[in-house]
Amino acid sequence: MDGVGVNIAFWVLAVVTIGAALGVMAARNLLHAVLFLILTFIGVAGFFLLLSAEFLAMAQIIIYVGAIAVLVLFAVMLTPHAGQSNSETKMALPAGLLALCLAAIFVFVLTDTDWSSVGSAPSVGVTGLGDALLSTWVLPFEMASVLLTAALVGAIMLTRNPEDETPEADA
């Protein structure tokens, strides 16, 4: 895909995504920060679409915007003393300067690099993705499922109230 339209879309998405990401950092109100976060996710989904990765774009919207962001919103709204505002920090200025320096280094390096060796992006449909996940990448795929199980077990263990736990059997 090449053309003026794609270029325009890229720059619009870039401005929206990075602007929203900055908004997440700068917003004083936690709710606003979460809303900015949703906008960032949508921007990223747009990039996936531009790269002809429709499935990824859809997954990004459904999982990140649909599930995760809504969960975060609920968590913020249901937490009574979460404080509606981010606290002030004295490190904002030095951290900002450091981030600018890093950004400068990255921009310099990324523009300086010869990306021609990469070739074109692979275009893989949902079928191809499924095949790949269950053949070449079956090991990482299964590791991810073990990882999720362990995380679930841990989450339940950490949030369980100690008083509700079953007493020792032989006590």
């Binding site: 990448w137 090991l139 990482p140 590791m143 991810a144 073990v146 990882l147 362990a150 995380a151 841990g154 989450a155 263990m157 950490l158």
Partner: peptide, 17 residues
């Protein structure tokens, strides 16, 4: 790289907990 990253998380997340 993918396997390395997942293995790292597989060892880290239980350790965080």
């Amino acid at each position: 790289l993918i396997t390395i990253f997942l293995a790292l998380e597989l060892s880290s997340i239980p350790q965080y907990i």
